[in-house]
Design a protein around this nucleic acid. Structure first.
Lengths: 139, 139
DNA sequence: GTAACTGCAAAATATTTGCATCCTT
DNA sequence: AAGGATGCAAATATTTTGCAGTTAC
């Protein structure tokens, strides 16, 4: 269940400001991940780059969004689901990057398979990053 | 089976130069991934940053090394195994980043489980990035 | 009113490009 | 000798920091 914008900010003890509302709204509208540049250009209003950096950082710290490991090491962010909280993410879901359109999906309903590691390794978090062609780009 | 340094360069039609030899040797000596900064400081000789950027890019293009998706989106590289070739990587192995010591391992012998995707998605490459504690840091 | 947030300027980093020189073949 | 690789300088791009003015509560 998704919370409203103001509600989400309040729940995280953040004051409700224009940039935070606009940026959070953009994430909620977007079915996928966003890079800094996407936010800079798609948020309607033009915010200062610095404000965007700081807003993203705040959202990550509060567990509202999380960074996504990408095959090309570009920095992208996506909304966390509600079981995420500050400092403790449950991001064991699958990220899919379409080679054709560049969209990054968070496939929340795909089960992350358990990986058997060699002795002595303990697991905190498992990220799966899949590249390929998405349902909108397949011929 | 690993090839020798000069052999690997020759096989990829690259001229054998000091920086390439030193950097490739560093990768072969290292049981894990390297960031640009690691190479700058650990290669014995100090190379120009630009040379390192260009050497890494060349190695990636030739399929000698590959970039690793990391949870913190820092750019890291690791040796490809010999089934890799220019433009075509077989990187479906598991990468493990230790939260304690920061070392990135390529766990080549760990099987990447098949992930079942929703209809319409086709897979080109699967990367698994696991964070946790490595065998040297576990108490 | 006060603490927190934003925007501007600027510093610090990271990456890319152009070109003359040097090295490999 | 010729083409490619390197190193330096400089152009770009990215991210961080400081601070004064503004806004949320």
């Amino acid at each position: 269940m998704l919370y409203g914008i103001a509600e989400t900010l309040k729940k995280n003890q953040l004051s409700i400001t224009d940039s935070r509302k606009k940026i959070l709204e953009l994430f909620m509208r977007t079915n996928g991940a966003l890079a800094h540049a996407d936010i800079e250009h798609q948020s309607g209003t033009e915010f200062d780059r610095v404000t965007i950096y700081r807003t993203l950082q705040t959202f990550v710290e509060k567990g509202i969004i999380h960074t996504i490991p990408t095959a090309d090491n570009s920095v992208r962010y996506a909304l966390c689901k509600d079981q995420c909280s500050a400092g403790k993410h449950h991001d064991d879901h699958v990220h899919f990057m379409c080679d054709a359109c560049g969209t990054t999906y968070c496939l929340d309903h795909v089960v992350v398979p358990a990986v058997v590691l060699p002795k002595g390794f303990t697991v905190t978090q498992t990220d799966v990053v899949i590249s390929g062609t998405c349902k909108n780009c397949v011929q």
